[in-house]
Each structure stands twice: as structure tokens, then as C-alpha cells.
Amino acid sequence: MLNEQDTGLIVTDIQGRLAKTVYQSEAFLLKCEQLIRAAEVLALPIIWLEQVPDKLGATTPVLQPFINRNSLITKCTFDACQNAQFVDTIQRNGKNQWLICGIEAHICVYQTALSLLERGYTVFPVSDAVSSRDPDNKQLALANLRDAGAAISSVEMCLYQLLGSSQHPAFADILAMIKE
């Protein structure tokens, strides 16, 4: 079960034209925004990844306002764990549970999540906040990650786990975000 004290969020490569061409991009981007905003309210560490932004473009404009430039890591490998800065950032945060959202589910999200699992982290791919151009690739990635030991979640599912109770101080704010 997720807990607020031991959880962080990894935002993977939601960039350029690709962010607009993934399956159900509008719904996907809305769920990513909800997840990111809720993570900010809960003061979870957020690590932002961009895959070769000089070629693929920067993070999509709808998410730009939420980026903390100090936590933005540029990478060229599909598996972010092949990037020393990413591994160092994960270790420095001291969290054992990582939510992961982004694109593409079957490439960068999949490879990064698998490597995190192999390193002993608990990984929660957020099903409605990951996407691919082809929905079959997304489903295949989530199925393989589940088989590898990941705990597949959704935005609402993970947020309610993190809150734990309607008495949580952030409950009203997060409920309002979910209802948007």
C-alpha cells in the first residue's frame, strides 16, 4: 500500500508532438496534471524526465507550469536508470515507492519501471496517466510490469491510498482536483 512518507512521483517524457499523438491524449494529459498537482499538494518529490528535448521538444505546455527546473533531468537512454543523475536523485530522495506516469508506456516508462523494480523499489505505474501511440503497446507494458512485480494503480486509486482518510488535511483539495 502506498504511503505519503515513502512515495515520490516520476514524470516521464511528456514532450512535444508525441504528447498530442498518444492514444486519448487529452484524457491522458488531464490525468497527468491531476496526479502532478496532487503530488505537489502532498509535498511528494517529483522527478521530471525529458528524452532528448532538442529533438523531441520540451515538456508539453500544459504541464510546463508545474516543472521544478531543479528536478528536471535530460536523458538519452530509454531506461532512466542508465542515467547517473537520475539514479543519484532517486537515492537522495530516500523514497522506496515510486509512482510513474508518462510516455511511452512500452518504452521509457516500461524500461525505467523495470529497472527500478530490479533495484528493489516498489513501482506503481499509474494506468490512466501512462500512454502510448498504440493502446495495445500500453496494455502490453502494464501487463508485463504487473508480471514483473509492479503494482498497477490509477490516479484516484493512488491518491486515496496516499490520503488514507477523509480527515487528511489535503483531502478537500485533492477531491476537488479529482472531480474536475
Rank of each mutant, 00 (worst) to 15 (best):
L2I: 02
L2Q: 03
E4D: 03
Q5H: 00
T12P: 01
D13E: 11
K20A: 15
T21D: 14
V22G: 07
E26N: 14
A27K: 13
A27G: 06
A27N: 12
L29Y: 04
L29R: 05
L29A: 07
K31N: 14
Q34G: 05
R37E: 14
R37Q: 15
A38F: 09
A39I: 13
V41I: 15
L42T: 09
L42A: 09
L42P: 00
P45F: 15
I46T: 15
I47W: 08
W48P: 00
E50D: 09
Q51N: 12
P53W: 15
T59Q: 03
T59V: 08
T60M: 08
T60Y: 14
P61M: 09
V62D: 04
P65Y: 08
P65W: 06
F66G: 03
I67K: 04
R69E: 15
F78T: 12
A80Y: 04
A80G: 12
Q82T: 07
A84Q: 12
D88C: 13
T89F: 02
I90E: 05
Q91G: 01
R92C: 10
N93R: 12
N93P: 00
Q97N: 07
I100V: 15
E104H: 07
A105K: 06
H106D: 08
H106L: 11
C108E: 07
V109G: 02
Q111H: 14
Q111P: 00
L114D: 07
L114H: 09
S115M: 10
L116I: 11
L117A: 06
R119E: 05
G120E: 10
T122M: 02
T122D: 01
T122E: 05
P125N: 09
P125Q: 01
P125E: 08
S127T: 02
S131Y: 09
S131F: 01
R133M: 11
R133S: 04
D136V: 11
L140C: 05
A141R: 05
L142R: 02
A143V: 08
A143G: 06
A143C: 04
A143P: 00
N144F: 01
D147A: 11
G149T: 09
G149Y: 04
A150G: 03
A150Q: 06
A151D: 02
A151L: 06
S153G: 07
S154I: 13
S154E: 12
V155Y: 02
C158Y: 03
G164L: 06
S165Q: 06
Q167N: 10
Q167V: 09
H168W: 07
A170E: 15
D173M: 10
I174Y: 01
I178V: 15
K179R: 15
K179T: 13
E180Y: 14
